[in-house]
Design a protein around this nucleic acid. Sequence first.
DNA 1: ACCTGAACACCGTTCAAGT
DNA 2: ACCTGAACACCGTTCAAGT
Lengths: 194, 194
Amino acid sequence: MRHHRDDVVRHAIDVLDAYGLADLTMRRLAGELDVRPSALYHHFRDKQSLLAAVADEVLRRGARPLVSSAWDEQVVEICSGLRDALLAYRDGAELVSTVIAFGLGASRPYDDLVAALGPARLGSDLTPTAARTLLHLVLGHTLDEQTHLQAGSAGAIGDDPRPRSDFAAGLGLVVDGIRLRASVPGSVGLDQGA
Amino acid sequence: MRHHRDDVVRHAIDVLDAYGLADLTMRRLAGELDVRPSALYHHFRDKQSLLAAVADEVLRRGARPLVSSAWDEQVVEICSGLRDALLAYRDGAELVSTVIAFGLGASRPYDDLVAALGPARLGSDLTPTAARTLLHLVLGHTLDEQTHLQAGSAGAIGDDPRPRSDFAAGLGLVVDGIRLRASVPGSVGLDQGA
DNA sequence: ACCTGAACACCGTTCAAGT
DNA sequence: ACCTGAACACCGTTCAAGT
């Protein structure tokens, strides 16, 4: 059977969700598509590019239109929407973190944050820094959270006693006097003043 | 020639610094020690344990005694000290992030942060959350920073135009009304009030 | 205590050739 | 445009056996 790029990405997400990122290999994916591994290189120059496409698709599937018009509420929506998107698939946070670290792909959340933060008129060139920092926070937190969630559901030796990772109320970020506050567990809130 | 555990860890750090984390393989390390790969399994049960020991040694070498007695200044020292330790070796941030994510090893910075934050008397059980969040911030930021630093020194296509990742003045964290402020580029500051 | 030899079950990637 | 066949240069890990 013949496939094209999108089929490969779809099957890759299935493999990711069923077996995890470590088992998302070119050979296994090829097997799942009933094709020789070398066939994948017709669609993607290398594995990194494949992973970038997979990460982009995971984010695309999780994307929701912004409902707020206020920039601060938009930042909240982007951050908690990103978290939701990452938690929707096994190892989603690890995948997207890896792709972002590698530099090609998964740039949508960053771009959206920069756009939303624009009207905040942060001092000097602080907007990209604030966007990256929020990204670090959400990625790091969700990676933590997903690791524990998956360790729990893997039916291991029972739930570990480590405190759950959450953004509790009263925890937040300050950028130039603007307070980006964490609200409910697992999401990032934001408010002005402080 | 016969080695023991510490020799292996020392050589592993040399390989890490010279060739990077991706090339720190059991086979290459064994070659560097003039030993068969299987010999390494006398010292470490698997590669993850080896990496945990390497991460711990990287952090141990970077450890500085705390000079401040004030808890808030201690937090600053721990965070910027951690950053310095990670930047001291190639792929240091990636190594330590991986080991922490995996869950065994590299727990010293977290423990130190929890200890330093103790006197802050944060509300309810917010101390571990604050510690983890600071860790996410420093690890994510330093990973970013080190990636760009190394991309630059790898003599690539010239420095990329992306804005440098830094914790500029005016950026910070708020935990229960206590403001953990970023100060000079690359380090995390902290002050009360807000 | 520390190591060898040999094997097992994998990887990502390239490339000429086929349809 | 999409794929095969075959190869290259690797991986982590196990385990009986040697000193």
